[in-house]
Amino acid sequence: MKPYNKKLKQASRDLRNNMTEAEKLLWSRLRYKQILGLQFYRQKPILNFIVDFYCPSANLVIECDGSQHYTAEGVKG
């Protein structure tokens, strides 16, 4: 298991419960090992970050930008 900041655990749970439309669409293709039988995790804390999707066997991180980045709050953040 990758090391992570334990303070991010609740934030990652909140993000899993409030996924963007782009994340939902991608997750529908990644879940259930649909791609080459690879297991992906969503909103995974790694070090001091929460990554959108993570595949440990491929050591792969996927970040999916959605419309939230175009709001005033998203641009500021």
Rank of each mutant, 00 (worst) to 15 (best):
M1G: 11
M1F: 08
P3E: 08
N5W: 00
K6Y: 04
K7V: 06
K7D: 13
L8S: 03
L8F: 06
K9E: 07
K9W: 08
K9I: 06
K9G: 00
Q10W: 04
Q10R: 08
A11C: 11
S12K: 12
R13F: 10
R13V: 09
D14S: 13
R16G: 13
N18T: 04
N18I: 02
N18E: 04
M19T: 03
M19K: 14
A22P: 04
E23N: 00
E23V: 02
K24S: 10
K24R: 15
K24Q: 12
K24G: 12
L25I: 15
L25Q: 15
L26F: 01
L26C: 04
L26K: 02
W27L: 10
R29A: 12
L30R: 09
R31K: 11
Y32R: 11
K33V: 03
K33G: 05
Q34S: 08
Q34N: 10
I35V: 14
I35R: 13
L36G: 10
L36M: 11
L36S: 13
G37I: 06
G37D: 07
G37S: 06
L38R: 12
L38A: 09
L38Y: 15
F40P: 01
F40S: 01
R42L: 06
R42E: 04
Q43F: 03
Q43N: 05
Q43T: 00
K44W: 05
K44G: 04
P45T: 12
I46P: 04
I46W: 05
I46M: 04
L47C: 13
L47I: 13
N48C: 05
F49P: 05
F49C: 13
F49R: 13
I50A: 05
I50L: 05
I50S: 01
V51G: 02
V51N: 03
V51E: 03
V51P: 03
D52I: 01
F53A: 09
Y54R: 00
S57R: 06
S57C: 03
N59S: 09
L60D: 07
L60M: 10
L60G: 06
V61P: 10
I62H: 07
E63Y: 00
E63G: 00
E63C: 00
D65I: 00
G66K: 01
S67I: 14
S67L: 15
H69D: 08
H69L: 08
Y70D: 09
Y70H: 14
Y70C: 08
T71Y: 02
A72I: 08
E73M: 10
E73S: 13
G74L: 08
G74R: 03
G74F: 05
V75W: 10
V75L: 15
V75R: 12
V75Y: 09
V75K: 15
K76E: 14
G77Y: 12
